[in-house]
Design a protein around this nucleic acid. Sequence first.
RNA 1: AGGCACGUAGCUCAGUGGAAGAGCACCGCCUUGACACGGCGGUGGUCGCCGGUUCAAUCCCGGCCGUGCCUACCA
Length: 894
Amino acid sequence: MYPGGEGGGAALAAPMPTELPQYYDSNAAAARYYPEWEASGVFSADPSAPGEAYCIVIPPPNVTGNLHMGHALNNTLQDVLIRYKRMDGYNVLWLPGTDHAGIATQWVVERQLRAQGIERKELGREKFLGCVWEWKESSGGNIVRQLRRLGVSCDWSRERFTMDEGLSRAVRENFVRLYEEGLIYRATRLINWDPVGLTALSDLEVETEEGVNGEIWSFAYPLSDGSGEIVVATTRPETMLGDTAVAVHPDDPRYKHLIGQTVRHPFVDRAIPIVGDSILVDMAFGSGAVKVTPAHDFNDHEVGIRHSLPMISIFTPDGKVNENGGSYAGLDRFEARKRVKADLEALGLFRGRKDHVMTLPKSQRSGAIVEPMISTQWFMKMKPLATPAVGAVEHGFTTFWPDQWKNTYFAWLKDVKDWCISRQLWWGHRIPAWHCGTCQHVTVGRVDPTACEKCGSADLRQDEDVLDTWFSSALWPFSTLGWPEKTPDLAKYYPTAVLLTGFDIIFFWVARMMFMGLHHMGHVPFKDVYIHGLVRDEHGDKMSKTKGNVVDPVEAIDRVGVDAFRMTLTGMAGLGRDILWSEKQVEAWSKFQNKVWNAYRFLHMHVRERPATASPGPYDRWILLCLDRCVGEVRAALDGYRFDLAASAIYQFTWYELCDWYLEFSKPALYGEDGAAKAGAQFTLWTVFHALSRLIHPFMPFFGEELWRNLPGNAEAGSVMVANFPKRAEFDHARAADGVARQGAPDAIAALQEAISAVRRLRADKGLAAKIPLTATNAGALTTLFAGHSAALRDLANVTIAPGARPDQAAVLVIAGEEVYVDLSGVLDSGKERERLTREIEKLDKSIAFLEARLGNEAFVSKAPPQLLAKTRGELAGEVDKRASLTAALAALP
RNA sequence: AGGCACGUAGCUCAGUGGAAGAGCACCGCCUUGACACGGCGGUGGUCGCCGGUUCAAUCCCGGCCGUGCCUACCA
């Protein structure tokens, strides 16, 4: 356009066509549109606005982390749903935020400090926390900046952090309430201890490393009365320093007379009772006698409780033998193992060893071998919370997609042990409990107490521990909406619509949100839980630094463009399948993007302004009905979380129907002189892109926006984000028009496509250049049917259909049941044509044999549905006719 | 050990109780006025194996084999 124009007063008849660039630049579009979208306020939710609520809370990434492919997938899928629902008129809120990630973050900062020669303990709690906050502030923006690169439409004005003021308040409220209800308690128990991280862990934070080569080492405990010995075996000989019993099966004839006697501990001055325990001991295994270390083994601990055994802790928090280990005190646990073995051998008590492949419990964070230790910690009572959480899914208040994940969820909740929620860390929500120095009473409160609630003493000391990170995450769906306040957000958006996450945190997070939501809100936190797979490399291997196959999403976006990047992930996201990231797949979607872009440029060549509504011709009606079907498929797919099928439906329609056929069909009208036909095609082309840009937008947001904004005459429509997602009813006019026009007539478009393909095949088979025009003759109704399609036949197959008899030299085709003769005068190669016909006839023979066999089966005829029977008979008749035609043609060949 | 998935074209995956589909790869031909990041045509599969139900099974059921994951692990 020429700003200001040329003067002269005459309005330009038509705007100068905006020259669309040859290629669409996804990242340039992103840079242009994203800031504008964010500034426009469309991302921001308004609970007082109309529309049914549709809310998703983001699975909060680690605040100091970086975006990885899992995040990219997770957030892309959320954005697809959010944009779809927003366009569909829902009152949408996508609430973003980050997690403080207790252990993980503390570790990173500790490591940084250690690199500078500073130890956390020397620094002290206050100063150390200062460093963590500093690190959070300096790196905390990364992840949200990277999320923005994905084009996600979250409500950034509502961004939350698990340790912000509001959420900290929710955490405290939750703790106090559960404490008052008796669901949080302090107890001394055997827990999982991380000797490197120096903190308690929950069961879930312990990972098992499989396939570790170890040994089973046997030794003898001499009976105290000197009458013999009992052989026991262990993978951890050093734990014998804490043995307080030997267990045998009460029915075991070898040992049952010994129950009640004692054995003598060779290193510590201790007589150890022999107890009978049918739960622990399997008579058939090993020697049938088991050493019992109640302070360092979960099974043994139970035995200790059952038999009131002493529980002797033998390790210090950092995994060294303590004063209970006699002369071994001060040795690291692995060093102690060697010494114990050597000393037992020296005493002649060694009774053999064998190799044993075992699994080792390791700390999820530090990797250290976890040590069961008796320790005083805070726990959450799980049974009363878990039961309703199981029921809610059983009764369908929350649905898992795919459904089978509910089994995983049930399996854990139905057998869940109390949750150890305290951590000996500094970074996290400090436990709101104060210990009285005078009477030892613990005061828990919403506000910091100044005096012991029991004795009034002012000698109070706050509990040193912080809460497990997942304690705050468990509240996320309602704490982020304002709980414990009764906010408009909470009223409008809770329960949320769907949670999208990976299967690895069903226990950690999904289950805990479920029971916390049910407990505090009385409703499930989300109606659906969509569990997506893992992003792997193209061979299906897990991405890992050691394999060197990690794809950095930001780098990938820079390289391939954000739209194709997203579509690649989305296109593979079905139900219960992992996503295999492949550059080939990226390329396919880049090509798709390019294909659409070129079709769009074609539109711009022929449509300069918004076309007036025009009555659609046969091709127009056809493509509009295809689009209508596609819209239905996309909606159904998205409603069932089949992102892959939605992507595929769009691809199929766009490439195979719109580009391969419709654009070609429309050319004669667009380039021609028939005003009505032209208007119909222009209007249809515009209508298709008007819908397609909206259909694509949730998946390829910037591409959709670019198509929408540059659609001729669409400037005032604003952003595609707030346009309506296509509905099937939009194309009712085409359906109605098509119904009137066809009135039961055969499907001319299908016949046309068949004819074009048949001629093309013939050409390819005969090696005939496309330039050579062909004539096809037909004496039947087909010529009438094709009467309106001569231009399409000419342009797409370079063939003319005329009424008439069979030429002397001709190839016979059967289209829609009628013989069509393609005049090959002068170019007919009898040999090749004979081959072709023979091949065709062979195929028909097989088909006829198959159909006849079926119809000859009495059981089929009597039991198959009548519709199928009729169809089969019709097919057979058609095949027989076709065969007759081709056989005659073969016979007639010179 | 138990549980849950999965096994369809060379690769990655859709699919349905009524004669097997896509992308990529491969083989021909084609620069035609949206597009060579393209067009047209084509090759390619006893739908893991064995039984059962059914008129009809790749699809439903049972068993087996193989792969992956989860949970619990025996001192």
